[in-house]
Simulated scan of single mutants.
Amino acid sequence: MGEALHKHDVFQAIADPTRRKLLHLLGDGELPVTALSDQFPMSRTAVSKHLRILAEAGLVKDRKVGRETRYRLDAEPLRELKRWLAYFEQYWDNKLAALKLYVESDD
């Protein structure tokens, strides 16, 4: 799994709440699959499948340490998501400004 195959894009990968939690856990540093699977009410095999999707999207990297596979976050692909969302900030900012004006008005 070492090198990402990019079968899934970042948007597909983060669509699942389990995968988002995995990314959050890996944000604190490299972890073995056993430590990750302890955080979920599912089998290690199910967690491994989620990790494979994240790896295929380039969001996690893995490496073998003895018999153990350890995973780490690779946040670089999230920059694509950040750029995409940045475009829509103008709409959020406009709506928030309009809401502020409405709430602060005397009408």
Rank of each mutant, 00 (worst) to 15 (best):
K95C: 12
L99R: 11
L101E: 06
Y87M: 07
R63I: 02
A98N: 09
Q39V: 08
L78N: 03
Q12W: 05
K61Y: 09
L99D: 13
E89G: 10
P17T: 05
R79T: 04
E56K: 09
L59Q: 01
K21W: 06
L54N: 08
L99C: 12
K21P: 03
T18Q: 13
L85S: 00
P32T: 10
L51N: 02
W84C: 09
S48R: 15
K64A: 13
K82A: 14
A46L: 07
D107H: 10
M1K: 15
P17G: 12
D93G: 13
W92I: 14
I14Q: 12
A75L: 04
P32V: 06
L25Q: 07
R79Y: 04
R70G: 06
R79C: 03
A55G: 15
Y102A: 06
F11H: 12
V103E: 11
D93R: 12
M1T: 15
I53W: 01
R63K: 04
E80P: 11
E104R: 03
D93T: 12
L25A: 07
Q39N: 11
D62V: 14
F11R: 13
W84P: 06
A86K: 06
A55N: 14
P32F: 08
A46N: 04
V47C: 11
L73S: 00
R79H: 05
E68C: 11
L99M: 08
P41I: 02
A46M: 07
K95D: 14
L96K: 12
H6I: 10
D93C: 10
Q39Y: 01
K7R: 02
S48F: 09
S48T: 12
E104Y: 00
K21D: 05
A15N: 09
L99I: 11
P17F: 00
F88L: 02
K7I: 03
V60Y: 05
F11P: 12
A15W: 10
E68Y: 07
D93N: 14
Y102I: 13
E56D: 07
T45M: 11
E56N: 07
G2P: 11
D107Y: 12
E80I: 06
G66H: 01
N94E: 09
A86G: 06
A97R: 01
T34L: 08
V60L: 05
D9A: 04
A57C: 00
A35Y: 10
I53T: 03
E68W: 04
H50Y: 03
S48A: 14
Q39I: 04
A97N: 04
M42K: 08
T45S: 14
I14D: 12
K82S: 14
P32N: 13
R67M: 05
A55H: 15
Q12D: 13
Y102H: 12
G66T: 03
G2H: 10
M1F: 15
L99F: 06
E3Y: 12
D28A: 14
M42N: 08
R19F: 05
N94S: 12
D74F: 01
G58Y: 01
S48Y: 14
L31C: 08
Y87E: 11
L51Q: 03
E76K: 02
P41S: 06
E104H: 00
S37H: 09
W84V: 11
A15H: 11
V10Q: 07
A75I: 01
